[in-house]
Design a binder for these strands. Structure first.
Lengths: 233, 233
DNA sequence: CGCAAAAATGCAGGCTCTGCAATAATCCTT
DNA sequence: AAGGATTATTGCAGAGCCTGCATTTTTGCG
């Protein structure tokens, strides 16, 4: 690993490619089997057999059986974090987070084949999607740290934060609290967007749903307009 | 069964009391053991033995091993939902949800003994708290239905199912989306409040943290004031 | 007391997951 | 190209989780 040769970084070599293939094969087998027999009735043995590896090997790729159903991998977390830090300074934290996650979720609409099966499976097992997106896409703790870094390093020279009369204690508490809250809520919003789009796939593009979710969030979750049809009050 | 005698409803009878006691004993044993030996090193056998029942009986009380560590029970979900529906009409959906959850979370600060141990355990196992609060306190789906009913019932008393005759696509989408979003975000906010309070117990009352979280939410998660040390960077 | 409902228990069995050691594939250096 | 080093795969043993079923014990009630 100490890199004497020209081996740059990552994804060349027959080895890596095979690992990727195996991993992808496991995921695909898992989702396919789950769509056919139900999520609960798919064993690690079955998945491994379908993918052509041993059951033991399965656990070399995934820490748990459920993890194979999590299409958003751990790399996503890092990418989102980086995108958050690299986002333009003009954006508010919420906007930056939205854009960072949007970049990651773009592939949702592209890998439609697998995702459609995936959605079918998850429609009957919502808790898995929750864990999937909630836990991995965001990696709340890491994301919270990125948020903290962003707003901490974002102190522009203007230093125009007017009210200096807030108690130092409360401010510090808020500063610890805010990143965690933003990260968690943002991840949740992303999850809800995916869930909603899963159910009503035909009615709107995912991008629209995603945008709307964050608009609601930025607006403070006001009560939406009530249907005007009958007697709007 | 069909209540011939004066057996009113719930909590009399030697039988029920013993069940409660057993359940409580299991919970307490579990938390105590976890605090001592670490969450992962506590087996169902150990918990059951400490509580004086067989391991098989454990699974008559809890569906899974982890469930014994979830102090917020399934009843909470129903109570929150009812509180949400009973909340004054003047309150915005977010406020109503906040108050409904606040009522439920009051007991957090009261059962300090058990919760302190609990916090200690969960400090090293955050994913459990996430599942605990995220999954059970809110029961997002049910909560979303309650939200939908609340904002839908603003017009007609027939709260069966919302008006399905909305013309505009986007409005209908929003109406389906909003309750899910609010429920999920609210639950997340509650969880973050608990988590934050867990870490910084001494610095603030839980009620303060809880209130602040929802204030941020209502304000649209704006960037908080940056520490005044202007020379920063 | 004696019957019926409910709870607790023991047991068998399947599934998940982990360490360990042996084997096989890949990579790298010479 | 050969050989050694690294890494992946595999089988196996074993602990733990969880469920269904049959049995025993407890509780409620006439």
């Amino acid at each position: 690993m100490q890199c004497v040769s020209e081996k740059n970084t990552a994804e060349d070599g027959w080895r890596e490619r095979k690992k990727r293939a195996t991993r992808a094969s496991l995921v695909e087998s898992a989702v396919r089997l789950a769509a056919e027999h139900g999520l609960e009735n798919v064993t690690v043995d079955a998945i491994s057999a379908a993918a052509g590896v041993s059951a033991r090997t399965f656990f070399n790729y995934f820490d748990s059986r459920d993890e194979v159903f999590v299409l958003i991998g751990a790399e996503s977390s890092a990418r989102v974090r980086r995108a958050l830090l690299d986002a333009p300074r003009e954006l508010s934290p919420l906007e930056a987070l939205r854009d960072a996650m949007a970049g990651e979720l773009q592939e949702v609409e592209q890998q439609t084949d697998l995702w459609r099966l995936y959605v079918e499976v998850l429609g009957k097992a919502p808790e898995l999607l929750a864990r999937s997106l909630g836990a991995h896409l965001a990696d709340e703790t890491g994301l919270a740290e990125a948020v903290a870094e962003r707003i901490g390093a974002g102190t522009s020279p203007s230093a125009d934060d007017g009210p200096a009369d807030v108690s130092q204690d409360e401010r510090r508490r808020t500063l610890d609290l805010y990143p965690r809250l933003l990260a968690a809520v943002g991840a949740t919003a992303g999850r809800i967007a995916v869930e909603h789009w899963c159910v009503r796939q035909d009615e709107a593009d995912f991008a629209d749903v995603f945008r709307e979710v964050f608009e609601q969030l930025a607006a403070g979750l006001p009560q939406p307009p009530v249907p005007t049809t009958s007697g709007r009050r």
